[in-house]
Amino acid sequence: MIASKRSPLVLFVHLSVLLLVILWTIPTAGLLISSLRDKDQLAVSGWWTALSTSSQNLTVRAPGPEAQQQRDGKFVISGNALDNPGAKVSAFGFRTQEPAAFEPGQTATLNDGERLTVQEDGTYEIVSDVAMEGSRGQRIFVQAAVPSRFTFDNYREVLNAEGIGASFINSLTVSIPSTIIPILVAAFAAYALAWMPFPGRTVLIAIVVGLLVVPLQMSLIPLLKLYNGVGAFLGVPAKTYVGIWLAHMGFGLPLAIYLLRNYMAGLPREIMESARVDGASDFDIFVKIILPLSFPALASFAIFQFLWTWNDLLVAMVFLGTGNNELVLTGRLVNLLGSRGGNWEILTASAFITIIIPLLVFFSLQRYLVRGLLAGSVKGG
């Protein structure tokens, strides 16, 4: 029996797919690890060092002379230079030029004759033969080996930020209707373009295909002027949820109609003809036959549309506004980053908070994604 040999092309395709998966997975894994790291460690080392001990340079100011205590005829100021459990001092010093001049346990003589001793666990003592004077405490430079530490503090900080809950609800209020409405409208249009012959149908299909390449940025301002003009004529407030729903519907309809029309056109004609022989109307065929059979295409578009509307910031700012009551989640996190100076721990935690809902939607509908994207590539028998 001759063993079958795989084609080199098949092996190349598999390796290419594996490489793409790795290229996409590594940054995401790095972002997740960074979001769970201690913010001090995140500021000084990369995520790939998360499981190893990191070295940190700390500057601590000891309490002033008012904290000194008398022991055995000496005047002592004591404390601990480390606030991270498990950290160990590897070196210390009291001068900026020599921050690591002494090893743990050694005694350094300060400029005023006091003696400074720092132990490996971070405890220190400043001992003087006479009462210490002055207004400020002694600066102590410490090099510490800090073990890896993971925490949910970054997520707590983001989730406890003011207004984050309201913005989460605002994003859901925008995304869910902005996904459902285009599907409903596009399903009717796709059925008509696929199975209902009428004059100009080919032209309409060509227009839909052409609209797929129109950039959002080019059509945003004309659409906004049209919407404001119609709203002023009807006396409707300019920035409402209805406005952003209509905007997302307009931007999403070309892709929705294109996907659904291709899928519906590939359904077996015999099913529709049998239904018409039994007296079913076009509406009955659409509701009872076409929609159930087109669920893969509907789910495929729902994934794209929900991801787009959930992560959108530009359309939401233009059609909904930037007030505290209207701001969506992406806008709230951008403001949070701006007020915190772009801290890495806020950035990484915010990124994963924003993708929780899209991940749930994707994994619940992903089995239909490929079938929906291949719509119309194979005709039914």
Rank of each mutant, 00 (worst) to 15 (best):
I2K: 10
V287A: 12
P65H: 07
P358G: 10
N154M: 02
V13A: 13
L259A: 08
A166Q: 02
V203I: 12
S34L: 04
I346M: 07
S274L: 03
M264R: 12
R156M: 07
A299M: 11
A131T: 07
A67L: 08
V10L: 14
I126P: 06
F233C: 11
R71A: 08
A144W: 06
F92R: 03
L298F: 11
Q217M: 10
G341H: 04
Y368C: 09
A161Q: 09
W245Q: 00
M249H: 01
A50S: 02
G376A: 02
V209Y: 14
S178P: 05
P99S: 07
S128W: 10
L260D: 00
T109E: 09
F301R: 05
A375L: 03
D72S: 06
L184M: 10
L359I: 09
V142T: 01
L314I: 06
G321R: 09
F352P: 15
G341N: 01
D284N: 10
V209K: 13
F286V: 04
V370Y: 03
Q106C: 11
L18R: 15
F102Q: 13
L255D: 02
I181M: 02
Y258P: 08
W48C: 06
L211V: 14
W47D: 04
V277N: 01
I140P: 11
L36A: 00
E120L: 15
L82I: 13
A187W: 01
N325Y: 10
A349K: 04
S7W: 04
L110E: 01
P104Q: 03
L211F: 14
G323E: 12
V146H: 15
L223P: 05
F94E: 12
L259N: 08
L159E: 01
S300G: 06
T330R: 05
E66N: 10
T348L: 03
T179K: 08
S55M: 11
G243R: 05
V230L: 14
D312Y: 12
L15P: 14
Q305V: 07
L255N: 07
T117I: 01
F352C: 12
A100Y: 14
L110Y: 00
S7G: 07
S78N: 05
L204W: 15
